[in-house]
Amino acid sequence: MTRIQLVDDEPNILSSLRRLLKPQGWQVDTFTQVEDALGALLEHEYAVIISDYQMPTADGVTYLQFAKQKQPDAIRLVLSAYGDRASMIKAINQAEVYRYLSKPWDDYEVVAAIKSALDLYQLHKENQRLREENDRQRAELKAREEELLRLEADSPGITRVRRDADGSVILNHD
């Protein structure tokens, strides 16, 4: 199931976002404490992480930087009422956020941003899966080639045995 993490020190913001996202059928985990959100990163794999910017113990960008180390694949977004230039630059350069959303937010915009973040996440995952499959197939191919080389070294000519239509070995050279 697609898991999404929301971090904001204001519980009412989390409730309203949970309402907004409920029809989408995602598993939405909400946290008012940065420490708890960090703990959850060790337990679950998240597709998207959305954090507030200004919070008491750590700012959102610092949290997202941690999240990036723990779960580099999760797509990071900031939802902030504090849209000054410095905080945006920090969010982009340090936490490499995918979107910077502002409060008060537009419901449609938030859902659309999460959906496109999910697309990106799935694309990365798919990409990764294909790369791994490719690597595995290559390794298999290489092992097979090595086996053939070994056989050929042991018994020269064995890899070039010619067979008849019924499977019998043809010995005469022509």
């Binding site: 009412n12 309203s16 502002s102 409060k103 937010w105």
Partner: peptide, 14 residues
């Protein structure tokens, strides 16, 4: 102010 306005606005749409 933007924090409460944010969730009130979204709540109204819900």
């Amino acid at each position: 102010i933007n924090n409460p306005v944010g969730y009130i606005y979204s709540n109204l749409q819900s």
